[in-house]
């Protein structure tokens, strides 16, 4: 990939991140996160992961335009590199987002979890999960989009939900909490799946 192409993609993602739509989304997420943090769940780690999954589909495609990924294919660029680059951008922007959120939390709470808790959780579970999902979705671009991928993804989601539910139950055993997590996961799963289907639809 040429430096100019990286620049073009970076600027596109940057613009996407700071678009009005994204800022409004971020503010909504901040408010939801704050309210949830305050009234429902005191575990900042769970808040972070749920908000990440809520935020992920937006970061996944610039301006949430479902047709954008196909557009890359007309350019002289390796599509796999684009996906990896987007993962890096997502990670970079999400770290920025985490920092904002952490500072925000410092002001709001007298007791809080250490930043290392957040980052360790993030680096060892959310990033690998995201990368794995992307790999599953994109590695066979244009090839047969078989059922196996859905099965693997479902297993991953069930596994992640179980882990988070376990944490959630440990800290705040409420049914509402579990339901909210399921809703967020479902939203992420549905968005991501639709997005991928659009890419693969005509390639089948």
């Amino acid at each position: 990939m040429e430096a100019q192409q990286i620049k073009a993609l970076f600027l596109l993602n940057l613009k996407s991140f700071f678009s009005l739509e994204q800022i409004v989304n971020t503010l909504l997420i901040f408010c939801t996160g704050f309210l949830w943090n305050y009234y429902v769940n005191e575990n900042i780690i769970i808040n972070m992961s749920v908000m990440y999954f809520l935020f992920f589909p937006k970061l996944c495609s610039p301006f949430n335009e479902t047709r954008v990924p196909r557009m890359y294919l007309i350019y002289p660029i390796n599509f796999k590199s684009v996906v990896i680059l987007k993962d890096l951008f997502n990670t970079f922007f999400f770290i920025l987002y985490l920092i904002f959120l952490y500072i925000f939390n410092l002001f709001l709470r007298s007791e809080h979890y250490g930043i290392w808790d957040v980052f360790i959780y993030f680096f060892f579970s959310v990033i690998p999960l995201t990368m794995l999902c992307n790999y599953i979705f994109y590695k066979n671009y244009g090839q047969t989009y078989n059922v196996l991928k859905y099965v693997v993804l479902s297993m991953l989601i069930i596994f992640s939900v179980s882990s988070i539910t376990f944490l959630s139950v440990k800290y705040l055993p409420t049914l509402i909490n579990i339901v909210i997590i399921f809703i967020f996961f479902y939203m992420w799963y549905k968005n991501h799946l639709n997005y991928s289907k659009l890419i693969f639809k005509e390639g089948e």
Partner: peptide, 22 residues
């Protein structure tokens, strides 16, 4: 089907395309 990125301005899109084409 249009392959434009509708949230960019016309100029920004041309910048994007020209950089993608090196």
């Amino acid at each position: 089907k249009y392959i434009l990125i509708e949230k960019l301005t016309g100029k920004e899109y041309l910048f994007f395309a020209s950089r993608m084409y090196n």
